[in-house]
Amino acid sequence: CKVCGDVASGFHYGVHACEGCKGFFRRSIQQNIQYKKCLKNENCSIMRMNRNRCQQCRFKKCLSVGMSR
């Protein structure tokens, strides 16, 4: 997965992504979610083991690796 490094389940929203990141991105855009501000200057490292800790940084990384509708 380009977002968290887990095993990708396919090509989702323009990038190779796992089911977790695919679902997270889908919910984020469909529900237009505004995530809580990052407590670490929006510089969190997103990996499989910690991908749920900072939703703002995870969504930012989804966009930075090329995920789009």
Rank of each mutant, 00 (worst) to 15 (best):
K36G: 13
G66D: 01
F24V: 02
C4M: 02
D6F: 03
F11L: 11
G14Q: 05
K2C: 05
K60T: 04
K60N: 12
K61P: 00
R53Y: 15
R51Q: 11
L63E: 11
K36M: 09
N41T: 12
M47G: 13
N52V: 06
M67T: 01
A8Q: 01
C1W: 02
F25H: 06
R58T: 11
K36C: 07
E42Q: 10
R58L: 15
V7F: 11
V7D: 12
N41S: 12
Q55R: 07
A8C: 06
M67K: 03
R53A: 15
C4A: 00
R26A: 14
S64R: 08
F59P: 02
C54D: 03
V15T: 00
G5P: 05
H12Y: 09
G5T: 02
Q30F: 04
F24N: 00
K36Q: 09
R27S: 06
N52F: 08
N32A: 08
C57W: 05
V15N: 00
C57G: 01
G14D: 05
R26N: 14
Y13S: 05
S68V: 06
R27D: 14
N50R: 08
K40H: 11
M49P: 10
V65K: 01
E19V: 04
I33T: 09
V7E: 13
C18W: 03
R48E: 14
G66F: 05
S45W: 06
C54Y: 05
Y13N: 11
E42K: 11
F59L: 14
S28I: 07
K37Y: 04
N32Y: 02
H16T: 11
V3R: 00
R51I: 07
A17S: 08
H16E: 14
I33H: 06
F59W: 09
H12K: 00
I46W: 03
M49W: 12
F25Q: 02
A17V: 10
K40Q: 14
Y13I: 03
G5F: 00
D6E: 11
Q56I: 10
C54R: 04
D6I: 11
G14M: 02
S45V: 12
S45M: 14
R69L: 14
N32H: 05
F25P: 01
S68A: 13
R27H: 15
C57Q: 05
G5Q: 06
M49C: 03
S68E: 11
G14E: 08
M49D: 15
L39N: 13
Q30A: 13
C21Y: 11
V3P: 00
K40Y: 15
M49V: 13
R48C: 07
R51L: 11
Q55N: 09
F25E: 04
R58Y: 12
R26G: 11
